[in-house]
């Protein structure tokens, strides 16, 4: 890789200041995408600001919703995950497993064990790889991405292939969302890379809103699927998915599968998501 200057940030403010002082700096979290990209000489940041050691950016909190009427305590818990929390930490968190098991399952299927030990949720979200898993989850859960400058809704955050609403110098600090009443993730990995060829995250909030987000398949990155949302809003079941005609328009074709195949997989993975 090209030469670069490495900095270890002590906290988010320090990271922001290091970043602003750099000519073409980049935040380094787990580095599981950034480092390979630099090795391939596809990225050449002048400076790397490592935030993986910042304790304040790590950890998971689950805040139970106050009991209101008939709602069960576990429903609707507010979940906050620090940006530098690794996939393995999310996958293995006992509180999270009770409040929102689908997110643990999703994290436990990202990459491989060694990648999960190092890769972080913040890094994955900031990179917005069109085949990454977290963007689908965050969009379907209506999550909020908090940065050192502001809060951004997932709908506004993911803007296209490897593109986000983040400004220069803006650093993700945490991700938060409300645990859904129902939620599932169906992932069909690409045979080679094991990234999602199609990943469908379906969630029904405690208020009954249904959101379905698809990753891996869209020509323009992660997207919400209106047809599936409408069908599942009236009937949260695999049968409801069967009635939806998933169009291949706007879907990706590559050597692993064409748009028609991906359209088929969206239906199959949506069924898997709601049957989970």
């Amino acid at each position: 890789m090209y030469t670069t200057k490495y900095h270890k940030a002590s906290d988010a403010a320090n990271a922001a200041s290091l970043l602003s002082g750099a000519q073409d700096g980049k935040i380094l979290a787990g580095g599981q995408t950034l480092v390979p990209t630099m090795k391939q000489r596809l990225a050449a940041p002048s400076d790397l600001v490592d935030i993986s050691g910042i304790d304040a950016l790590r950890g998971i909190t689950v805040t139970a919703r106050k009991k209101l009427g008939v709602l069960k305590a576990k429903d609707g818990a507010t979940i906050t995950i620090g940006a530098a929390t690794t996939h393995a930490e999310v996958a293995g968190n006992a509180d999270l497993a009770k409040a929102c098991p689908v997110i643990c399952g999703l994290a436990g299927e990202i990459g491989d064990p060694a990648v999960r030990h190092r890769g972080t949720i913040g890094g994955s979200v900031a990179n917005n790889d069109p085949a990454a898993d977290y963007p689908a989850a965050l969009m379907a859960l209506g999550a909020t991405i908090t940065t050192n400058q502001r809060s951004i809704s997932a709908d506004d955050f993911f803007t296209g292939l490897f593109a986000t609403a983040l400004n220069d110098g803006e650093i993700i600090t945490e991700i938060s969302f409300q645990a859904p009443a129902e939620g599932g993730y169906g992932k069909f990995p690409s045979p080679a890379s094991r990234y999602a060829m199609v990943g469908v995250f379906a969630a029904k909030s405690i208020d009954g809103d249904v959101r379905v987000a698809v990753t891996g398949a869209g020509d323009d990155g992660v997207f919400r699927h209106a047809g599936l949302e409408a069908a599942l809003a009236s009937n949260w079941s695999a049968d409801a998915v069967s009635g939806v005609d998933v169009s291949a328009d706007g879907l990706m074709s590559d050597i692993h599968g064409n748009a028609a195949y991906r359209a088929n997989l969206i239906g199959v993975m949506a069924k898997k998501a709601v049957s989970a």
Binding site: Y6, V35, D50, V115
Partner: peptide, 14 residues
């Protein structure tokens, strides 16, 4: 913890 040493800077293992 198992990690891929080809996907990590030495500096990050300080």
């Amino acid at each position: 913890k198992a990690m891929k040493s080809c996907t990590m800077l030495a500096a990050a293992a300080e």
